[in-house]
């Protein structure tokens, strides 16, 4: 299953909830959730822990828009919108953690 999160984990619980409930699969960070892909934040240890269970992706245009495309946590893959579409097709279902 593809889990899509769109909120910064530093201000919202959506990513925490996703990581608590979902047991694994693909995780795509879009919109404000791309801050979770940045190295050096308070959330980094939790993200590194999540990488043991999830394949984690971050949306490139959202990273670039926010000036955080450099210094990503190691192991997080970057995709464009085409890659986003591919992730949806590769997974039987997807869930947006709104």
């Amino acid at each position: 299953m593809l889990h899509i999160v769109n909120k910064s984990p530093l201000g919202h619980a959506a990513l925490d909830s996703c990581l608590r409930v979902a047991q694994g699969g693909d995780l795509l960070l879009i919109e404000d959730a791309v801050y979770a892909a940045s190295a050096g934040t308070l959330f980094e240890p939790l993200m590194k822990d999540a990488l043991k269970r999830f394949k984690v992706y971050a949306l490139q245009p959202d990273l670039e828009a926010r000036g955080v495309a450099a210094h990503l946590i190691e192991g997080i893959a970057v995709v464009d919108y085409g890659g986003f579409v591919d992730l949806v097709t590769q997974n039987k279902t997807c869930q947006s953690w709104l």
Partner: peptide
């Protein structure tokens, strides 16, 4: 519990979040 719920989500065809 969270794990049972996560497993149930994995069984779905369509998930709508609000």
């Amino acid at each position: 519990d969270r794990k049972a719920l996560g497993a149930l989500m994995d069984e779905q065809d369509v998930v709508l979040s609000f």
